[in-house]
């Protein structure tokens, strides 16, 4: 018996095309996310009630309401994280803390997204609840 090393399947040209297209779109959006970053100084919290910017330099706890209940976001030592949410799986809490460019965390059931925002260059068009 001879054991050859080979791929379990034979790929065809459009398989590679699909792979490369998908990879290119992935890289494009990743770079886009980083580019928007720069110097991270704010946390943007978006929920059904609107959006609000908070300085990452000030420690605080923010509670927002969504369709399934409350989500609690903690800003501490320049990082932000979900510490509690009224959803079933708490994926948002498991996501951990965010602080760098292009980072985000979300509680999808409760429709809350938090993301990092840059400093002066960004136009502050958000309102505080």
């Amino acid at each position: 018996m001879d054991y050859e090393m080979k791929l379990p399947i034979t790929l065809k040209p459009f398989d590679w095309a699909a792979f490369i297209l998908s990879l290119a779109i992935f890289i494009a959006f990743t770079l886009f996310g980083w580019k928007q970053g720069g110097n991270i100084t704010y946390l943007l919290i978006e929920s059904q009630d609107g959006s609000a910017l908070y300085a990452l330099s000030e420690d605080r706890t923010v509670t927002v309401k969504g369709p399934v209940g409350e989500s609690i976001i903690q800003i501490s030592e320049g990082e932000a994280s979900f510490i509690y949410s009224d959803c079933a799986d708490e994926l948002c809490v498991q996501s951990g803390a965010i602080s760098g460019p292009g980072e985000w965390a979300a509680c999808l059931p409760n429709r809350v997204i938090i993301s990092t925002r840059g400093g002066e260059s960004e136009v502050l068009d958000a309102h505080v609840f």
């Binding site: 790929l11 065809k12 459009f14 095309a17 792979f19 998908s22």
Partner: peptide, 21 residues
Amino acid sequence: LAWRFLKRNITFVGISILGAL
């Protein structure tokens, strides 16, 4: 569409990647 029109040049790997995208 990928399966119908690219059948000869694509396998389920490419089809599945396009579907996910």
